[in-house]
């Protein structure tokens, strides 16, 4: 979903750049609470894994493809503030080094994938986690649902921006219907990859998974109660 230069006009691009700078500023403060000696290396790994996985476009229908956005994946594994920073690093390197995603569209791409993708993914994840049984394994389906919803929501976000400042006269409903339709299918791929990646960390090192922390705390309490009883 890397927006190239030219799709959006200058005022809209400046607006999203302001949003992106503010969001990264907030994330730099928030990430300090999420990162410690144990989780900082995992956060670095998540960033480079998202970059690598974004190179693997998977076919979704005749003539089109999709790739992981990684917002929900990163948020569940290392926390949403750190995830916003990780996705931002990926997008900056892609725009400058790989010419993937426009330079003037960098603020737009950070807003859509690093803010909307991450925080919608995290929000849905926490809602689903709250209703599922309180077991660490439940982090996996909750993350998958967060991933599934985050992609079409980011696509809807682009459609709104295009209605505000698109450089072509296409009705909002036309763009939104097409964008959300295609990205619901891409969201299924996003959910599968997110489930695989999160499951592999939950199985090996659940203590490192940011989204599993409330469940692990609860589990320890259960064990202590059982022992003392």
């Amino acid at each position: 979903m890397h927006v190239p230069d030219g799709f959006l006009d200058a005022p809209t691009s400046v607006g999203t750049a302001v949003v992106a700078v503010a969001a990264v500023g907030v994330a730099l403060r928030g990430a300090r609470r999420e990162l410690d000696d144990r989780t900082a290396p995992l956060a670095g790994l998540v960033a480079l894994f998202v970059f690598a996985t974004q190179m693997i476009n998977f076919p979704i229908a005749a003539g089109t493809s999709g790739h992981l956005l990684g917002g929900a994946l990163a948020a569940v594994l290392v926390g949403p503030f750190t995830a916003t920073l990780a996705i931002t690093v990926v997008l900056i390197v892609q725009a400058i080094l790989m010419a993937d995603g426009g330079i003037t569209a960098l603020g737009t791409n950070i807003t859509l994938m690093g803010v909307v993708g991450v925080w919608v993914g995290w929000g849905v994840f926490t809602l689903v986690r709250a209703v599922l049984p309180k077991r660490t394994a439940m982090v996996v389906p909750a993350a998958a649902l967060g991933a599934l919803v985050s992609v079409p929501t980011a696509a809807l976000g682009f459609s709104v921006l295009f209605a505000l400042g698109g450089n072509a006269d296409v009705p909002f409903s036309t763009v939104a219907t097409a964008m959300v339709g295609v990205h619901v299918v891409i969201g299924i791929g996003e959910a599968l990859i997110t489930a695989l990646a999160v499951a592999s960390i939950v199985l090996t090192r659940p203590d490192l998974v940011h989204g599993a922390k409330p469940l692990l705390a609860q589990r320890e309490l259960t064990i202590r109660t059982a022992v003392s009883a």
């Binding site: 979903m1 190179m55 693997i56 476009n57 979704i60 003539g63 089109t64 790739h67 296409v170 295609v182």
Partner: peptide
């Protein structure tokens, strides 16, 4: 990897 345009570029072409 698939070399088809991604969702956004596909929609841009279609619309």
């Amino acid at each position: 990897a698939s070399s088809h345009p991604d969702g956004l570029m596909f929609v841009a072409g279609e619309k």
